[in-house]
């Protein structure tokens, strides 16, 4: 990983990658791009971390056109963030996705940073403030864990649950949950294993792995 392009210009490297992708895709299905050009009808909105190690379409072995995506620092959904709210509005109201996934992950730099007191600069301090608040609220639970990796994993989970709570209040999500059974899902991606896990939330209604907001 990440070594093959040292000899070449990094931009040429990805443009060459794009040409290879285009040729491979066209060879498999000559109409692939013509079909994609007609429009998108993804079933899933994925809200994940900007972290380079979790390319959603790749780790889910999906094809272009299947997952609508928002990725930001530490997969955080703030109630007052118009960026994420606009993505949710577009995906739910206009594209009519039926499932919204919030995916956190182990070894998250954002979660780690939120566990410490380092000054990350005003922009990041402000963005991560809600995650640091989680750390304060769950202080005893976090202190009881064996090491920093476990604490980072726990805060990643709490952060996913909090983002889901915020999403449940989004007007488009509320409406779609009532009218056509849109569901919300919390996931954790284990970077060291390459595996997705469903977060089981205690006290929530859980049916066959699906969690329907009340």
């Amino acid at each position: 990983m990440g070594t093959s392009y040292i000899a070449t210009d990094p931009l040429d490297y990805i443009l060459a990658g794009n040409r290879a992708y285009q040729q491979r895709t066209t060879k498999r299905d000559p109409n692939a791009f013509a079909l994609l050009a007609q429009g998108q009808a993804p079933e899933i909105l994925w809200i994940g971390c900007a972290d380079s190690r979790i390319p959603e379409t790749t780790v889910c072995h999906c094809k272009p056109g299947e997952i609508f995506v928002h990725r930001n620092i530490a997969n955080t959904v703030h109630a007052d963030d118009l960026n994420a709210a606009s993505v949710v509005e577009y995906a739910v109201t206009h594209l009519r996705v039926n499932q919204v996934v919030v995916c956190g992950h182990t070894k998250c730099g954002g979660a780690n940073a939120a566990l410490g007191d380092a000054d990350l600069g005003q922009t990041l301090n402000m963005w991560l403030h809600p995650v640091r608040e989680l750390r304060r609220k769950h202080k005893f639970e976090l202190e009881g864990l064996p090491d920093d990796d476990a604490r980072a994993a726990k805060i990643a989970e709490l952060n996913v649950q909090q983002s889901i709570e915020v999403l449940k209040q989004h007007p488009a999500v509320k409406r779609a949950a009532n009218e056509r059974g849109l569901t919300l899902h919390g996931l954790i991606y284990d970077i060291g294993a390459g595996e997705l896990k469903i977060l089981s939330e205690s006290g929530s209604k859980k049916m066959n792995g699906l969690w329907t907001p009340p």
């Binding site: 990805i14 290879a20 959603e56």
Partner: peptide, 20 residues
């Protein structure tokens, strides 16, 4: 956010190579 443009897939990059 468009589902048809997974950045890593269309640039042929592996996990770990591009922040998104």
């Amino acid at each position: 956010s468009d589902s048809r443009i997974p950045a890593e897939a269309i640039t042929g990059l592996d996990p770990g190579e591009m922040f998104i």
